[in-house]
């Protein structure tokens, strides 16, 4: 093994760079978390501190006094994200199943089509989408934020690739011999095999949906319907007095769930990024 043909100095530099970048990733969030426990006056006197203070509850009171309702936002975001994620993974698996298991005439054209529409971005259709939802009176509903997730081309692509490599068609055949109906076979036999792919895609779909701002911002007008990102986008606007401690706390509350999800599942997320890398 020739692994030691690099100098110690070079290796040290590598570590210094890595540690610097790690600090760069962590510092903004660390400042945010610590400042969320400090009072606005303290922050004004010294913007950076590594010692948490004792004004967390005070900040929370100011924050919730400003019509910022973290529980509500959390719940709304959760409903939308869970719904969208469930739709994405279930129906993408189903579509992939159709693409892999059955031999139908339009299969190849359909697949090519899915590849082609993979990059239709949501912003460019927003006007038509908004007008459509406005006309059918769904502007203050979560449905327009959940149902479109049924058609997620890139997830279908990923699921198809996974299925091709890990679903032996013999299993489907033998299920048929046992008299299992096709839909049943998909739900009871194929889906469990897809578990790893579902897990990866679920995480990304969830995070994506959780972080969305553009569509919710134009669709949801009622304060009770606001998602976390909308609430965040309104945090800065307080016309009479700037409460930095409360702003930091608001930001912290919005990312807390993401931090928890991320650090619990980071291994799968990183693996998922690598796995999905060929398609982005």
């Amino acid at each position: 093994m020739k692994k030691l043909n690099v100098s110690k100095g070079f290796l040290a530099m590598v570590y210094i760079v890595c540690i610097f970048l790690a600090a760069l990733s962590i510092m903004p969030f660390l400042i945010m978390v610590i400042n969320s426990t400090r009072s606005t006056v303290q922050i004004q006197q010294q913007a950076i501190s590594l010692i948490p203070s004792s004004h967390l509850i005070e900040n929370f009171k100011i924050l919730t006094g400003k019509a910022f309702n973290p529980m509500r936002g959390f719940l709304n975001s959760a409903i939308i994200s869970v719904g969208a994620t469930a739709c994405t993974v279930y129906f993408s698996s189903l579509t992939a199943h159709a693409l892999v298991v059955y031999n139908w005439k339009l299969r190849q054209p359909f697949f090519t089509f899915i590849l082609a529409v993979m990059m239709v971005p949501s912003q460019v259709i927003s006007i038509g989408f908004y007008q459509f939802m406005y006309r059918i009176h769904l502007t203050n509903s979560f449905l327009p934020l959940i149902l479109p997730a049924i058609a997620a081309p890139s997830t279908v692509f990923f699921m198809r690739q996974f299925m091709l490599s890990s679903l032996p068609l013999e299993i489907v055949e033998s299920a048929r011999i046992d008299g299992s109906r096709e839909f049943h076979t998909f739900n009871r036999i194929v889906l469990p095999i897809m578990k790893p792919a579902i897990a990866t895609q679920a995480i990304f779909s969830f995070v994506n949906s959780w972080n969305q701002l553009f569509l919710p911002l134009i669709l949801l007008t009622r304060q009770e319907k606001y998602t976390m990102p909308i609430m965040v986008s309104l945090l800065k606007g307080d016309i009479y007095k700037r409460e930095n401690g409360a702003i930091y706390l608001g930001l912290t509350l919005t990312v807390l769930p993401l931090f928890i999800v991320y650090f619990l599942l980071s291994k799968y997320i990183i693996a998922g990024v690598a796995l999905g890398s060929v398609k982005g």
């Binding site: 719904g83 203050n140 509903s141 979560f142 449905l143 959940i146 319907k225």
Partner: peptide
């Protein structure tokens, strides 16, 4: 549940 919630919401 979610879709029900979503409907209820409206």
């Amino acid at each position: 549940c979610v879709s029900m919630f979503a409907c209820l919401g409206t």
